[in-house]
Computed example of a mutant assay.
Amino acid sequence: MNNRIFLSPPHMGGNELTYIQEAFESNYIAPLGHNVDAFEAQIKAYTGAKYALAVTSGTAAIHLALRVLGIKDGDEVMASTFTFIGSVAPILYERCTPFFIDSDTASWNLDPNLLEEELSHRAATGKKQPKALIVTHLYGQCADIKRLAAICDHYGVHLIEDAAESLGATYAGKQSGTFGKMGIYSFNGNKIITTSGGGMLVSDDETLISHARHLSTQARDHAPHYEHTEYGYNYRMSNIIAGIGRGQMEVLDERIKRRREIFNLYYNALSEIEGISFMPEIENSLGNRWLTTLILPEHVSPEHVRLSLEEDNIESRPLWKPMHAQPLFQGAPSLLSGFSDTLFQRGICLPSGSSLRDEEVATIVSLLKSLIH
């Protein structure tokens, strides 16, 4: 059997072990330490965010964002329906009501027209506005974030950017995750850079990040004993995995460059086949192409393609099943166009890791062509 081709495996840069060794030598094995501080500083320098907080996951970062923004107990939170469960699970953690919004064809991300239609209707009829919008920059590609931010600002809705998959992606030269009130990144094992597991919360609001930092370490008050006036979480990133993050940040631009090259190899080989369309990159944006994703022709079953690739030891994956179609969210209010359902029914993610070789892409392309025709 051929060596397995994974969807998006970790790709180390070289200095990760050096920073881990520093943590061992200093005996800062538990959370906090120099690596955590340095990793946060790297994220701030790279993204332009004024403040950053390293935590255990992107989901933890979204949860903290909701907490420090005071969103809880029946408040309504709008969110992308075409996303991963980690983007919206924190809405349930805080006992809030999700309201899902469909994708547009221009970006495959949250549709600003649907959002504006809903918020303007509420304003005209006196209906209560949502407290927040969580917008996901899916598969490393920017949503129409400048317009979404303007809509949220106009109607007084907090914007939280789920940039878990889009670190390094830009819109009008500005980093994804830095347009909203708060933004988050993920460093899960398959992301464009990884710490094996971890996340980052960013904001230009020092008070919000300071409160989130307090909550992330069990909300311990300043006292020689353990004193608590509110509850918190064990959400702080460890000094060990932050060392991995430091090494990964040093090669982020190289990883983006290679992922974009891989996308172009797929695109140039497959885009002229009738019925195939790739996830678009909206004007004035630059995605990191974390995963290459495409819609297959109507006569081709994505599951058949996935299983056929698996027979050759090649990992692929369906596109996300929309949140409004999940049993967990049955009956949740939604504003739908049907496009995310189409994406789920006809889409697939192809192997896109930055260590993928050109000849491996050629093998995958050849197999896909044989399955499509």
Rank of each mutant, 00 (worst) to 15 (best):
Met1Gln: 12
Ile5Pro: 05
Pro9His: 08
Gly13Phe: 09
Asn15Arg: 11
Asn27Ile: 06
Asn27Gly: 07
Tyr28Asp: 06
Ile29Trp: 15
Pro31Asp: 01
Leu32Asp: 10
Ala38Pro: 03
Ala38Met: 09
Ala45Lys: 15
Thr47Pro: 09
Gly48Val: 14
Lys50Ile: 14
Tyr51Pro: 03
Ala52Glu: 04
Val55Thr: 04
Thr56Tyr: 04
Thr59Ser: 14
Ala61Asn: 03
His63Phe: 07
Leu69Cys: 14
Ile71Phe: 02
Ser80Leu: 06
Thr81Ile: 10
Thr83His: 03
Ile85Tyr: 07
Tyr93Leu: 13
Tyr93Ile: 08
Arg95Asn: 15
Pro98Arg: 05
Phe100Trp: 12
Ala106Trp: 09
Asn109Gly: 05
Asn109Ser: 07
Leu110Gln: 04
Arg122Val: 10
Thr125Ile: 07
Lys128Cys: 10
Lys128Ile: 13
Pro130Arg: 05
Ala132Thr: 03
Gln141Thr: 09
Cys142Glu: 00
Leu148Cys: 05
Glu161Ala: 03
Ser166Val: 10
Lys174Gln: 10
Gln175Glu: 08
Gln175Asp: 06
Ser176Leu: 11
Ser176Phe: 11
Gly177His: 08
Thr178Gln: 02
Thr178His: 03
Met182Asp: 02
Met182Ala: 00
Ser186His: 05
Ser186Thr: 07
Lys191Gly: 07
Ile192Thr: 00
Ile192Met: 01
Gly197Glu: 11
Gly199Lys: 02
Val202Glu: 01
Asp204Val: 10
Glu206Leu: 15
His211Asp: 01
Ala212Met: 11
His214Pro: 02
Leu215Glu: 00
Thr217Val: 13
Arg220Ser: 01
Arg220Gly: 03
Ala223Val: 10
Ala223Pro: 08
Pro224Phe: 13
Tyr226Ile: 12
His228Ala: 04
Glu230Ile: 11
Asn234Leu: 12
Gly247Ala: 12
Val251Trp: 15
Asp253Thr: 13
Ile256Pro: 01
Arg258Met: 14
Ile262Lys: 00
Asn264Phe: 14
Asn268Tyr: 13
Leu270Thr: 06
Ser271Phe: 12
Glu272Asn: 15
Ile276Thr: 04
Ile276Tyr: 06
Ser277Val: 09
Phe278Leu: 07
Leu286Arg: 13
Leu286Tyr: 15
Trp290Ala: 01
Thr293Val: 13
Ile295Met: 11
Ile295Asn: 00
Ile295Asp: 01
His299Trp: 15
His299Lys: 11
Ser301Lys: 07
Pro302Trp: 12
Glu303Arg: 09
Leu307Ile: 04
Ser308Pro: 00
Asp312Val: 04
Asn313Cys: 12
Ile314His: 02
Arg317Gly: 04
Leu319Thr: 03
Gln326Trp: 14
Pro327Trp: 15
Pro327Cys: 06
Gln330Met: 07
Gly331Pro: 00
Pro333Lys: 11
Ser337Lys: 11
Gln345Lys: 13
Gly347Thr: 00
Ile348Cys: 05
Cys349Ser: 02
Ser354Gln: 08
Ser355Ile: 11
Leu356Met: 10
Arg357Asp: 12
Ala362Asn: 09
Ala362Gly: 03
Ile364Asn: 02
